[in-house]
Computed example of a mutant assay.
Amino acid sequence: MDALELLLNRHSNPRLIEPAPAGEQLDTIFKAGLRAPDHGALTPWEFIVFEGEQRHALGDILAEVAQAKGDAPERLEIARNAPLRAPMIITVVAKVKPHDKVPQLEQEISAGCALMAMQMAALALGFNGIWRTGWFAFDRNVHQALGLSDTDQIVGFLYLGTAQVEVRKLPERDPAQFVRYFGK
């Protein structure tokens, strides 16, 4: 797929089945993520992969945290089953490092760029995915269960697999509605 065509037609797909990327394809996806903009060459990212039975472990973490928060029983099952919506989930973490010229937000944005690059690479390889966040991404109990430090921040969960169904084409947007030229 042509790079410009990929960028102009990118879309997420929440209905994912086996297979997920593996081997060289998965390595290519990670390499794409590692090319994200990175002021100061801090490499402020970590990618935590959940596949197979490990998705159940992630679901257990999410359900336990939801229960501790006081969610209703039906919400606990939704949380427990969330990681089963795709054959692979990559949790993308901003590993924020103290730096006098590269603030926390910039490092988090860099990790977000890594996630986007990984999703685009997956699409280019014939897979699909969806970037999810939700309150779990910001919950310190989830962070602790995943072994993250106090300065780390989950920027998203990248669900990857093969599209089960084709999604509708996204509507075209007029750039003029979002662009403003300063001074004009």
Rank of each mutant, 00 (worst) to 15 (best):
S110T: 02
M120S: 13
F136P: 03
R132Q: 14
W135F: 13
G126V: 08
I109E: 00
A121T: 02
G134W: 09
A121Q: 15
L115R: 00
A117L: 14
M120V: 12
I109V: 14
L125S: 12
M118G: 09
G112R: 05
N128A: 15
A117V: 07
I109F: 09
G129L: 09
M116H: 11
L115G: 01
G134C: 11
G134R: 02
Q119C: 09
I130P: 01
T133G: 10
E106P: 05
Q107C: 02
A117M: 10
A122K: 01
T133Q: 14
A111R: 04
L123N: 00
G129T: 06
G112F: 04
M118V: 00
M120I: 10
L125M: 00
A124L: 02
G129C: 02
A121M: 15
A117K: 05
A117F: 12
L125F: 10
R132C: 08
S110K: 03
R132K: 15
I109R: 10
L125N: 11
E106M: 08
F136V: 13
M120C: 09
E106L: 05
A124C: 04
Q107D: 04
M118L: 06
W135E: 13
R132S: 08
T133F: 03
N128H: 15
Q119L: 15
M116C: 09
A121F: 00
W135P: 14
M120A: 14
G129D: 10
M116Y: 10
C113T: 06
F136A: 15
F127I: 06
A124S: 15
F127R: 00
I109G: 00
M120D: 06
Q119W: 14
A124E: 15
I130F: 07
W131E: 12
F127P: 01
Q104D: 14
W135V: 10
W135G: 15
M120G: 03
A111I: 09
I109W: 13
W135R: 14
W135L: 09
R132T: 05
L115W: 07
F136N: 04
Q107T: 02
A117I: 08
A121W: 06
T133I: 08
Q107L: 06
G134M: 06
C113L: 08
E108Q: 15
F136R: 04
G126I: 12
S110G: 11
A121L: 08
M116A: 14
F127D: 01
E106G: 10
G112A: 13
A122L: 04
G126R: 09
M118N: 03
F136C: 12
A111C: 08
L123C: 07
L115I: 01
G126Y: 10
Q107K: 03
W135K: 13
M118E: 05
I130T: 13
F127M: 00
Q104L: 01
G134L: 12
G134Y: 07
F136I: 00
G134H: 02
N128G: 14
L123A: 14
M118D: 06
S110E: 04
